[in-house]
Simulated scan of single mutants.
Amino acid sequence: MSFLDHLEDLRWHLIRSTLAIVIAGTGAFIFSRFIFDEIIFGPKKMTFPTYKYLCKISQFFDFESTFCAESFPFTIQNRTMGGQFSADIWTAIYAGLVIAFPYIIYQLWSFISPGLHPNERKHSKGFILVTSFLFFLGVLFGYYVITPLSINFLGTYTVSSEITNEIDLSSYISLVRSSSLASGFVFELPIIMYFLTKVGIVTPQILKKYRKFALVIILILSAIITPPDVASQVIVAIPILILYQISIYISAVVVRNQNRKTKQNV
């Protein structure tokens, strides 16, 4: 295929991916009331599973905790005429992105797989499954861990009893969305390292050598996507560190297989 033919092929893959997001987003828009009441505003309720679990832990150690409160000391408000409609549309689009993610990855794989050797395609059959699993695992981690920790910390933080927290709708949704999606993409680290190793940009020796620098970057990333308290940052940093170690192992396996193929060809 010529360069223009590749661009045409890519264009159709992008069109199919966009249509998948639109279709999934339309379905999400139809069930928007459920999405908002049960999912988006779920972490605002003290009956959320994360709060109940953390409350039991604090009670076991006889600690006072905001996780055991009856409700959060803030309300959510909309201050613009089209605010709720806009929030509904954008939430449906992002929900469509999450729902259609496996199909988007399938389209991406369909575009790059013809350029791989038969053996590479054979050993990469689980690419779509593994990539989708890591993404959804990250989204769930962000939703059930990062989001409630952020809401609990920021929603109960106060500088004076004279101030009443009335959180804007867009601000609240942005926190839930960014925490969940950011975690979903961060959990793709092993897949990214796999392909970077395949093209020779990364090696396990490089990953081990710069492990200390990676630790600093991970802590900075954890500070960005979590509230500014040490406990939340550590909770987020632990799975990312585990993913980094898994990436080193995956990189080592890729290099070992490449060396084995080189010896066989010689």
Rank of each mutant, 00 (worst) to 15 (best):
S2M: 02
L4Y: 13
E8M: 10
L10Q: 10
R11T: 11
S17F: 03
V22Q: 10
A24I: 00
G25H: 01
G27M: 12
A28Q: 01
I30Q: 08
F31N: 02
F34A: 09
I35R: 02
F36V: 07
G42R: 00
K44H: 06
M46A: 13
T47Y: 10
Y51E: 08
Y53I: 15
L54C: 06
S58K: 08
S58P: 01
Q59M: 13
D62W: 04
T66W: 07
C68P: 04
F74E: 01
T75Y: 02
T75L: 06
I76G: 02
M81A: 13
G82P: 04
G83C: 01
F85I: 13
F85C: 00
D88M: 11
I89V: 15
W90F: 15
T91M: 07
T91H: 00
T91Q: 11
T91E: 01
A92G: 05
Y94V: 10
G96A: 07
L97V: 15
G115C: 03
G115T: 08
N119E: 14
E120S: 03
L129A: 14
V130M: 13
F136H: 04
G138E: 05
G142H: 02
Y143P: 06
Y144H: 09
I146E: 00
I151S: 00
I151N: 06
T156Y: 12
S160L: 00
S160I: 10
I163T: 14
Y172R: 02
Y172G: 00
L175E: 00
V176F: 03
L181D: 02
A182F: 13
S183P: 02
G184R: 03
G184C: 05
G184E: 05
F187W: 07
P190Q: 07
M193A: 12
V199S: 11
V202T: 06
T203Q: 03
P204A: 05
K208Y: 06
K208V: 05
A214K: 04
L215D: 05
V216Q: 03
I220C: 11
S222K: 08
S222M: 08
I224N: 00
I224E: 07
T226L: 04
D229K: 11
V230K: 06
S232A: 15
I235C: 07
Y244T: 12
A252F: 08
N257D: 14
Q258M: 10
N259T: 07
K261V: 08
Q264E: 14
